[in-house]
């Protein structure tokens, strides 16, 4: 089950989207997500859909990978669609027993489904095409202006990249400890709720211990290499804008323009 989580998963491929500067991709994702909430009519989602298809095609990531991320939120999606469908007040179009479906309900539920789907796919395009390191680099540089008001941007992005880096390691560790306890007769998948929760203790305690040990080792290793935070720190591969990034920004501006125009025109 843990392995289904595609958050932060990177899909290596050779594409323009992969090579784009992470700042372009971060801003692009932000604009795309905002555009989903600006639009008030179904027609407004046509450019969003086209834009998404264009990006997915350009990224060369198989579509099945995007859908995998959807599985995790399938429940949330169905839940919110059903709630909106039945609980929105308005002109009734269909009644069955005590349940009423209204015109407004269908509309809100439809919006909700489209928004959530696009939101997840849109943000997974970014994580699938950007390595975690690149992503945090982009965040650090892109949010650099916040340093003026004393936001520790470097520290935050460092914490983020370490956290992302540790996900696969801890997953592997969980697997190992689980096997070791199974060899001692531990049973993780039978019994009632209470029993199962209790069975997790022999798994969670060693996992926490090892997480702390790893964190401690890492801190030591960083100090041994004189890490002292972001002040005056240089990068081996500093982020630099290229022509393709300018084109990327241009396309984004164009997309944003279309969305705003549609919003004004299709009142």
């Amino acid at each position: 089950m843990l392995r289904d989580i595609t958050l932060g998963q990177y899909y290596p491929a050779e594409s323009v989207i992969h090579r784009l500067d992470p700042r372009v991709k971060l801003l692009g994702t932000l604009i795309f997500l905002t555009s989903l909430f600006i639009t008030k009519s179904f027609y407004g989602y046509i450019p969003a859909l086209l834009f998404l298809i264009f990006i997915i095609k350009a990224s060369k990531v198989p579509f099945s990978f995007m859908v995998r991320g959807m599985k995790a939120i399938a429940f949330l999606l169905v839940f919110s669609v059903v709630l909106n469908l039945f609980l929105t007040q308005g002109d009734v179009v269909f009644t069955w027993w005590k349940l009423k479906i209204t015109k407004q309900g269908i509309q809100t539920a439809g919006f909700m489904a489209i928004r959530l789907t696009f939101l997840i796919i849109g943000s997974s395009v970014m994580t699938l095409t950007t390595t975690p390191n690149n992503l945090t680099d982009g965040l650090e540089k892109g949010l650099g202006f916040l340093k003026i008001i004393h936001v520790p941007v470097h520290e935050i992005s460092m914490m983020m990249s370490i956290a992302l880096r540790f996900i696969p390691i801890l997953m592997e560790e969980t697997d190992k400890i689980m096997k070791a306890q199974m060899a001692r007769g531990a049973d993780f998948d039978s019994g009632n709720m209470f029993k199962r929760v209790k069975a997790l203790v022999p798994l969670l305690v060693p996992l926490f211990v090892s997480a702390f040990r790893r964190a401690n080792d890492l801190a030591m290793a960083m100090e041994a290499r004189c890490y002292r935070g972001g002040e005056g720190r240089t990068k081996m591969k500093p982020l630099k804008y290229h022509r393709r990034d300018a084109i990327g920004y241009l396309i984004l501006a164009l997309y944003l323009g279309v969305i705003i125009a549609l919003r004004i025109l299709l009142k």
């Binding site: 070791a180 060899a183 060693p206």
Partner: peptide
């Protein structure tokens, strides 16, 4: 379960699997 009692497997770095509050309880697991 019975098999795992009969074929005892000690993993690499087995000390990473310790979890109880005292040594004796852990061996009892």
């Amino acid at each position: 379960k019975k098999l795992r009692g009969e074929v005892g497997l000690v993993f690499q770095y087995p000390e990473h699997q310790l979890f109880e509050t005292d040594v004796f309880k852990d061996v009892c697991f």
